[in-house]
Amino acid sequence: MLKLLKYELKSRKNLLLGGSLTIIILNILIMLDWKLGGNEIFGYDDTFGAILSIVLFGIWVAILVIIIIDSINILRKDLYEDTGQLLFTVPKSSYSILLSKMLTTVIELLLFGLLFTTLMISIIVAEGTNFESVKVMLQVLGENIGIVLQALFAILIDIMNFLVTIYFSLVLTKSLLKDKKYSGITAFGIFLLLSIFMGKINSWLFRYMPYSSDLGMSLRYGEFVLELPISAGESIAIILFNLCLFIILFFLTGYLLEHKTDI
């Protein structure tokens, strides 16, 4: 599986390296601009800095969109294009292939998430802000580590569920239709129906089993005190439901790929 992951990541090295480098360079430019004369980092009286900031924001959005599109294409191409005849003839199970593709997207998101966090911290440091806000945040996070981990786990399950729903829709379509012509719209229809179904169950669970954990935070920023009640987001019931759904869809997709799909 690790070997599969290696080649999936290798195929995305342009996005990973190019995207990261562009973002880092733009951040450095913004910080330099601020150091050399701008009044504040996202200061609107500094036109150059403002333009850089807008471009940087645009690139972040573009990268997010590319990752989402990529997460679909990562399997779609191997199902419908000739490269499938390489990938699906390697002696690896369809489950390994699926998992490697999902993990590739998760790693991409993690890498850019880490980069975003690192750059935000470096901007705060460059700005010379007192670190009280960061300290408070870290302290609150440390005191509520269980809830934080629960929230992170819920996010991870949500991402994996999103991906497995896409893959299930693509593989089911491929096993039902030989013709590529209507495959896109059919897969989208299946994805939409599944998402509506999952959304309905989630809201039902939220209504009848509303337990969720809250983080109460007070962040001081200069003279401002910001009360920030952060919900861990999803109740345990929803997380468990989504986890079960992920497992079922994952094995169903793997089974379809192994036994019912013609490449």
Partner: peptide
């Protein structure tokens, strides 16, 4: 297996 298509990844 040698397919009759261009099966290697373009990258």
């Amino acid at each position: 297996y040698l397919p009759d298509t261009q099966h290697l990844y373009k990258w």
